[in-house]
Design a protein around this nucleic acid. Sequence first.
DNA 1: ATTATTACTATCGTTTCGATAGTAATAATT
DNA 2: AATTATTACTATCGAAACGATAGTAATAAT
Lengths: 141, 141
Amino acid sequence: MKMNNKFRSSCPIASTLDIVGDKWSLLIIRDMIIKHKRTFKEISDSDEKIAPSILSARLKLLESYKLITKRKLPENKKENIYLLTKKGIGLAPIIIEFTLWGNNNLREFNDIDLIDGLESDKSMIIDIVQNNYSSMLIQFG
Amino acid sequence: MKMNNKFRSSCPIASTLDIVGDKWSLLIIRDMIIKHKRTFKEISDSDEKIAPSILSARLKLLESYKLITKRKLPENKKENIYLLTKKGIGLAPIIIEFTLWGNNNLREFNDIDLIDGLESDKSMIIDIVQNNYSSMLIQFG
DNA sequence: ATTATTACTATCGTTTCGATAGTAATAATT
DNA sequence: AATTATTACTATCGAAACGATAGTAATAAT
């Protein structure tokens, strides 16, 4: 995996964009953190139809920056299980803010899904998402 | 300006990414909302060295989705003044979350600038950023 | 009148994307 | 046990986007 400094600057925003600032990474994180998707196959099956070559490349990159881990379970040697790390779970606020902004600002340009619970307190939504994911994680070591 | 539905799905996250999910848009917004940059020249002069062709294309796109407006002042017919709209100012929470995440999670991969005030309450930081920008806006109609 | 600045556009080689097909390993089915 | 299906990829290759540089037209400054 090429890890040759591809950071454009020392700005934290720019650096974050250098890792997840593409059209797919945050959608992969969305599926993992909200829908609890864990395998290549599950992540492939989204409305947005990500190409396998892109998904493969993105998972490798996210793994290299320690946002996700990859493992196999003893009972299944075929499937890889991808799980979010703490760093990855820490992206929940960003995911939630994207949801809120799209929900409030793009309805004139696109039919946006209605999502339940968005009127609740922001930090509560974030807590719930993160806690649910962390609870799910317990079943894995 | 081509406005042919380039939305991949009706998911608010995906739709937001379809507009600002590239390596440059949020950096342009950052410079506008935090550093109060207003002209093509000012925005060009960032650490990340955006190419003029890209900046030009991005400004047009952001304008087409009503995140920014473009105008000239009577006293200067050369400069274009770019200002954030309400929709654009609404991106402040996303910008702040990117800052916080990068600040907390990327120090092992890149030298990240130390930023003052990040230990304050999130919603307060966002309020300050948005209020400062809105105050600055008053001098324009 | 000349020079500088601003906001671009044009060009063009490089990189990335993205659709599709193919493959190797494992698991399920008959 | 043999065949079929599934999973997680890799390979290919044309299309789109990026990015560095140069150029230009309008305005402003000297």
